[in-house]
Amino acid sequence: MFSKDIGIDLGTASILVYVAGKGVVLREPSVVALHKDTGKLLKVGTEAQQMLGKTPGNIVAIRPLREGVISDYDMTERMLKEFIRKVTSFRLFKPRIVICVPSGITEVEERAVIDAGIQAGARRVYLIEEPVAAAIGAGIDITRPDGHMIVDIGGGTSDIAVISLSGIVESTSIKIAGDQFDEAIIKYIRRKHNVLIGERTAEELKMKIGCVFPRPEEQSIEIKGRCLMTGLPRVFTVTSSEMIEAFEEPATRILEAIHGVLERTPPELVADIATNGIVMTGGGSLLWGFDKLIESHTGIETYVADDAISCVAYGTGKSLETIGDMQDGTINLSRRKQMN
Rank of each mutant, 00 (worst) to 15 (best):
I258C: 03
I258L: 04
I258A: 01
H259V: 04
H259L: 01
G260T: 15
V261L: 11
V261R: 12
V261H: 04
L262E: 06
L262N: 06
L262C: 04
R264E: 10
T265Y: 13
P267W: 08
P267R: 15
P267F: 15
L269D: 09
V270P: 02
V270I: 14
V270H: 04
A271W: 07
A271Y: 07
A271M: 08
D272K: 11
D272V: 14
I273W: 03
I273K: 07
I273D: 02
A274S: 10
A274M: 05
A274D: 03
T275I: 14
T275N: 05
N276Y: 02
N276E: 05
N276P: 06
N276A: 09
N276R: 10
N276V: 04
G277D: 08
G277W: 08
I278V: 06
I278Y: 00
I278L: 00
I278M: 01
V279Y: 00
M280Y: 00
T281V: 13
T281A: 12
G282F: 09
G282P: 08
G283A: 11
G283I: 09
G283C: 09
G283S: 07
G284M: 01
G284S: 05
S285Y: 10
S285L: 09
S285E: 05
S285P: 11
L286M: 13
L286N: 12
L287Q: 00
W288V: 05
W288P: 06
G289A: 01
G289T: 00
F290D: 01
F290L: 08
K292Y: 02
K292E: 07
L293N: 04
L293W: 01
I294R: 00
E295N: 03
S296T: 00
S296C: 00
S296N: 05
S296A: 09
S296D: 03
S296E: 00
T298P: 02
T298Y: 04
T298N: 03
G299S: 06
G299W: 03
I300T: 09
I300V: 08
E301S: 03
E301R: 09
T302V: 15
T302L: 11
T302D: 07
T302C: 13
Y303V: 08
Y303N: 10
Y303M: 12
A305H: 09
A305Y: 15
A305D: 05
D306I: 04
D306E: 10
D307P: 06
D307R: 08
D307I: 03
A308R: 13
A308Y: 13
A308M: 14
S310A: 11
S310G: 06
S310H: 10
C311Q: 07
V312S: 02
A313H: 12
A313N: 12
Y314N: 07
Y314P: 01
G315T: 10
T316G: 11
T316E: 05
T316N: 06
T316L: 06
G317T: 06
K318C: 07
S319V: 13
S319E: 15
S319I: 15
L320W: 07
L320H: 04
E321K: 15
E321I: 10
E321M: 11
E321C: 09
T322Q: 12
T322Y: 14
I323K: 03
